[in-house]
Write a protein that binds this DNA or RNA. Structure first.
Length: 802
RNA sequence: GCCGGGGUGGCGGAAUUGGCAGACGCAUCGGACUUAAAAUCCGGUGGGUAUAUAUACCCGUGUCGGUUCGAGCCCGACCCCCGGCACCA
């Protein structure tokens, strides 16, 4: 036996053995309790990066631990294989097809995952770009189309000039494209949407089912959905047979609504100004606003600009005529694109009113204020606090809360307005003007209009030979044999939808395909869903907090409504793992601070790499890469290796299968032996709980290090003849089992070197004994006035002597 | 501005939830082995005061205050950092 851990000789050998034995295949017939552990699948970009190593190491520890704990574990892997980089590579290199590029990357990354020793059931591998997967993505689209949850609509959408495609709101960050950082434009286009807004309330309310999600992430989603309760109120427009609808969260302030403001894009603007002397002036203003960058226009710091339309509305409660303004600070995309301005109680409205000399009426004031406040007394500060109503006719004296209810009742009775909930969340725009994605299964018939492709004609296959250079329209446009088809309803001439789906659609249900990956009749069977769904533990980066995780939750609810599963949440437990940093920032090619996992694996081996990445930091925190830290992990593994190799002769003689645990006679232990035995049980408890309950792998590993130190400590004080080999062997065996999820290769090798039978991976997880953990100490509790004053621990032997 | 998370040695981080702050590791210093180096093993390492030494005592978890026999942890006020949303009506 070598005197050091030679990973290059060992790791590949074990990976091959595990594969040959089919060790990680999920047993469908097992009667053990099921456990489904899943890491977010990667986009096949070509090579694993350190972020991948981190997620997959975490998932692998959990999978191996749960297996040893006696669960029937499902631990699958797949590929989020559609996407822009494949197409961009094809354009850049000219002669490589996105499909070939993707398949080659997948092969590459699969090998790298195997080299890490990850315990996946590769028989369940899922690839979203294969027709047998995207057939079901299309199938879900059609089910949603039939239920009115997928619809086509013309509206102002986000356009990324870099990617030459539209984007969902969720993919726009600070008005930039989330993937290429180009400034996003607005374009008026007809596009496909999923009606995620129908699920807004459920997406918020069901957060209560997600007890183990980080509060931070629930908050992010809640902010994103942006639910606000208020009223829609109709204001008659003077001289036009129309009503102007506004949304407000403060109907209690309606008596203070002294003017109206429309977004420049509001349809009523045209009607108000057409043919009036204001027409030219107003249009000039609107053009000026349109030229403003989105960022400038929507920043709270920006100057509020506006103009009078010449029109008036009638405040339905006061009956007074109030001017209708247009201003850059009102947005068409939220509410109704029009507001009732209450300058006394909204800072934006007050700033605007002062600039354009509009009337201000105080209608709420603090309870301790007796005299009615004048607008001058506000001194430019809108009053947004609570209090009682004034200047509000019959409602005077009511509190803000009472006024809301009374006002709502009154307005509903008079049919002026109704209580409404508004969301910031927009419907999910899913069409993309790109090639490498799932075709949208819709056909446009000259006589029948848009028709869903019948289920028995799925999949609508993506054609292979296509000119991909982006033109702002889908490259499928020019593939005549794809585009020209016949109508499934009337058999007449028809054209196919040429846009493809956002790749986030593909990844919104992949976790359900793993549970039944070869099903030809359905995306998955309900029986399998009952067995495996929801995912027991999901692991992935927090950067998907809104995009992927919101979409996946939405899809699960839709799928549940379709009756395919009873579950409404896909991931009850989600571990949001942090990033891997170098020099304090995210690794990136442009910064030149990338550490390539391939180099680390070549230099230190998989066990060391895994151990370091799990030990350096708790999983949800960002992790600073440190070569010195990696060396520390290597040092520790070698310490364990030597613990065995230096005593291999004595250890090999102990065979628990023959002499069983009666060789361990706790009563006859001396002080040092007792201490080591105690340390063993303490370690078992700590490691088990750290993995199982807290997902704190860093502290689990430090506990194993302490046990290793304790073993060295024990040996240090002894001559070789005095070693209690049965005890020492027991400690080593258990130590290897505890360490095996973290360092699977080395522990596998040591396990057989010791002459033990079977794979260490298949050993039962050790149980700890409470009694073995007790220190030989007596606790003396000092009480004063019945309260515990002090606890003193005294060595039992000493106290007996006294 | 609103919402959420956080602040502990030179560094990454522990403290099993109110009970010996700094586990484990990195870095560093000293010792052993060696002709020497590497590797390895053993030991020191929050700050300070006293002592020849063993040791003893004081201070210390962003700041100030409170509750408690006892606070890194609970309460109040404030400062700073990170993340989300934001002219959202």
């Amino acid at each position: 036996m070598k005197g050091f851990y030679d990973y290059s000789q060992i790791e590949e050998k074990w990976q091959k053995k595990w594969a040959d034995e089919g060790l990680f295949k999920t047993d469908e017939q097992s009667d053990k309790e099921n456990y489904y552990v899943l890491e977010m699948f990667p986009y096949p970009s070509g090579n694993l990066h350190m972020g991948h190593v981190r997620v997959y190491s975490i998932g692998d520890v959990i999978a191996r631990f749960k297996n040893m704990k006696g669960y029937n574990v499902l631990h699958p892997m797949g590929w989020d294989a559609f996407g822009l980089p494949a197409e961009n590579a094809a354009i850049k290199h000219g002669n490589v097809h996105p499909a070939e590029w993707t398949w080659a990357n997948i092969d590459n990354m699969r090998e790298q995952m195997k080299a890490l020793g990850l315990s996946y059931d590769w028989d369940r591998e899922v690839t979203t770009a294969y027709p047998d997967y995207y057939k079901w993505t299309q199938w879900f689209f059609i089910q949603m189309y039939k239920k009115g949850l997928a619809y086509k609509n013309k509206s102002a959408v986000n356009w990324c000039p870099g990617c030459e495609t539209v984007l969902a709101n969720e993919q726009v960050v600070n008005n930039q494209c989330e993937r290429c950082d180009s400034e996003v434009d607005k374009k008026e286009l007809e596009q496909w949407f999923f009606k995620i807004t129908d699920y807004a309330d459920r997406l918020i309310d069901d957060h209560q089912l997600l007890e183990n999600w980080p509060e931070k992430v629930k908050t992010m989603q809640r902010n994103w959905i942006g639910r606000s309760e208020g009223m829609k109120i109709k204001f008659p427009v003077k001289g036009v047979d129309q009503e102007l609808e506004v949304f407000t969260t403060r109907p209690d302030t309606i008596y203070g609504a002294t003017y109206m403001v429309l977004a420049p894009e509001h349809p009523l603007v045209k009607e108000l100004i057409d043919g009036t002397d204001k027409e030219e002036e107003v249009n000039e203003f609107i053009n000026k606003v349109k030229k403003q960058k989105e960022m400038e226009r929507t920043s709270p710091e920006s100057e509020k600009d506006g103009i009078f339309t010449g029109g008036y509305a009638i405040n339905p409660m006061t009956g007074k005529e109030i001017p209708i303004m247009i201003a850059n600070y009102v947005l068409m995309g939220y509410g109704t694109g029009a507001i009732m301005a209450v300058p006394a109680h909204d800072q934006r409205d007050l700033d605007f009113a002062m600039k354009y000399d509009l009337p201000v009426t105080v209608v709420i004031q603090p309870d301790e204020q007796e005299e009615i406040l004048s607008s001058e007394e506000l001194a430019g500060e809108a009053y947004t606090g609570g209090g009682h109503l004034v200047n509000s006719a019959d409602f005077d004296g009511l509190s803000v809360e009472e006024a809301f209810d009374k006002m709502a009742a009154e307005m509903e009775k008079k049919d002026i307005g109704n209580v409404e909930v508004n969301y910031r969340l927009r419907d999910w725009l899913i069409s993309r003007q790109r090639y490498w994605g799932t075709p949208i299964p819709i056909v446009y018939c000259e006589s029948c209009g848009p028709v869903a492709v019948p289920e028995d004609q799925l999949p609508v296959e993506l054609p292979h030979d296509v000119e991909f250079s982006p033109t702002g329209e889908s490259p499928l446009k020019n593939v005549e044999e794809f585009v020209n088809t016949e109508c499934p309803e009337c058999g007449g001439k028809a054209k196919r939808e040429i846009d493809t789906m956002d790749t986030f659609v593909d990844s919104s249900w992949y976790f359900l395909r793993y549970i039944d990956p070869h099903n030809q009749e359905l995306p998955f069977s309900k029986e399998m869903a009952e067995k495996w769904f929801p995912v027991s533990q999901y692991i992935g980066g927090v950067e998907h907090a809104i995009l992927h995780l919101l979409y996946a939750r939405f899809f699960t609810k839709v799928i549940s409504d379709l009756g395919l599963t009873d579950e409404v949440e896909p991931f009850g437990n989600w571990l949001a793992q942090g990033m891997v940093l170098k020099d304090g920032t995210k690794m990136s090619k442009s910064k030149g601070n990338v550490v390539d996992p391939r180099e680390i694996l070549a230099k230190y081996g998989a066990d060391t790499a895994r151990l370091f990445i799990l030990f350096a930091s708790p999983p949800e925190k960002d992790l600073e890469w440190s070569e010195a830290g990696v060396e520390g992990s290597e040092r520790f593994l070698n310490r364990v290796w030597r613990l065995v190799s230096e005593h291999i002769r004595g250890l090999k003689e102990i065979d628990f299968a023959k002499s069983d645990s009666s060789a361990i006679d706790v009563k006859s232990f001396n002080k040092e032996e007792k201490e080591l035995y105690r340390q063993l049980h303490v370690t078992i408890k700590r490691v088990s709980e750290d993995i199982d309950e807290r997902l704190n792998f860093n502290t689990a590993i430090s506990a194993i290090m302490e046990l290793t130190n304790a073993a060295y400590q024990y040996l240090n004080n002894l001559d070789a003849d005095d070693i209690n080999y049965p005890l020492f062997k027991l400690v080593i065996d258990k130590l290897l089992v505890l360490l095996s999820p973290f360092a699977p290769h080395m522990t596998a090798e040591l396990w057989v070197e010791l002459g033990n039978k079977g794979f260490v991976y298949e050993q039962p997880w050790p149980e700890y004994q409470e009694s073995a953990m007790k220190k030989d100490e007596v606790t003396i509790v000092v009480q004063i006035n019945g309260k515990v004053r002090d606890k003193v621990e005294v060595d039992a032997e000493l106290s007996e002597e006294e």
